[in-house]
Nucleic acid binder design. Sequence first.
DNA 1: TTGTTTCTTGATTGACGGGTCAATAAAGAT
DNA 2: ATCTTTATTGACCCGTCAATCAAGAAACAA
Lengths: 194, 194
Amino acid sequence: MPKLGMEPIRRAALVKATIEEIGAQGSLDVTVGQIARRAGMSSALAHHYFGGKEQIFLAAMRHILSTYSAEVRGALSMATDPRSRVEAVIRAGFSTSNFRPEVVAAWLNFYVLAQTSPDAARLLSIYYARLRSNLCHGLRPLVGDRAPEIAGRIGAMIDGLYLRQGLGQGLPSGEGTIGQVVHLLDLELGAAQS
Amino acid sequence: MPKLGMEPIRRAALVKATIEEIGAQGSLDVTVGQIARRAGMSSALAHHYFGGKEQIFLAAMRHILSTYSAEVRGALSMATDPRSRVEAVIRAGFSTSNFRPEVVAAWLNFYVLAQTSPDAARLLSIYYARLRSNLCHGLRPLVGDRAPEIAGRIGAMIDGLYLRQGLGQGLPSGEGTIGQVVHLLDLELGAAQS
DNA sequence: TTGTTTCTTGATTGACGGGTCAATAAAGAT
DNA sequence: ATCTTTATTGACCCGTCAATCAAGAAACAA
């Protein structure tokens, strides 16, 4: 049965299974055995390819982050004016792929992991820096030096809405969630003009 | 050595030790043994008084929530006009006692617990309902029917800033954090007037 | 004194989970 | 044909941890 060149296939399957398992179980405590079973292999093979549980999680996190980055790039490529740039970043953050319950649950899991794992903390800070940079890039032509603080507030609200969604305390419709952030953007732009 | 009437003393010591241990260790995974050792007793005694690990956590969460409620009541008692009522709620949420790293870490822990424990989820929803109610009560005289959605945005930003603080990605000064939310309040009030 | 209740812990149990290892099997290389 | 590399797993080890239990020690009641 052993086919050659299995490594990338197995790694991708494990990353996919990790995200699915977190979402399916709802819990943030998933075992390597559960992930491996969902991916159709033994837990020993998961260890063979990744070395440990934490590295499996980090690989899943990198996958989510790279997907997110690609979506942001795609959305930005269609934006012409600064205002639509900012909206593109917000919409990408709340895109269906990022907003699926299992991905939100994965984010919560990674938040927890970032408390103890320097690698996870580093990845998270990269995400924050990128988000800030993307928002500032669109905001600076509109509000100048006030861009960083406005970006901070928008980012905080995105995180807060994410959290509530993950806890099942958010609004039922995800579209309304985007509207909340866009509303904040409107307020900030209106205040900066005066 | 056994003194009589130890139960309330032991329970309070365990609640205090639970919060301290979460903050001291930084991690969200604390064991009953660590909590009991910090409280100066054996893990068996902790089980004797609380029955299980989850109930220890829930007791600590209830303590934090009741402290928070008392602070909100105290701050509201000194507010006269609606605007200062809203600010009082915001300031109480970011009071030094709620904003200490160990309390923030405890909140993250309870978020995680709420994913699996119905009791924890119930407590969290009570917190959310109270926060919404407190904010709406102050906002309604100012903005009328728009109070609920504005309260939702303010609450989301509070949560988001909490999250960043817990992850060490927030601003160094907690005072600036309050300013962010007050800034949002100003924007919302200004927009509602027009 | 003789129970009885309250407090307290060391020792133990049982389960779970991450990680390792030897062994097996296929595919290619020499 | 033999050797090496890659793939794969079942079985096992070891540590951790929640929860239990039996027993001891102090205060109190009879």
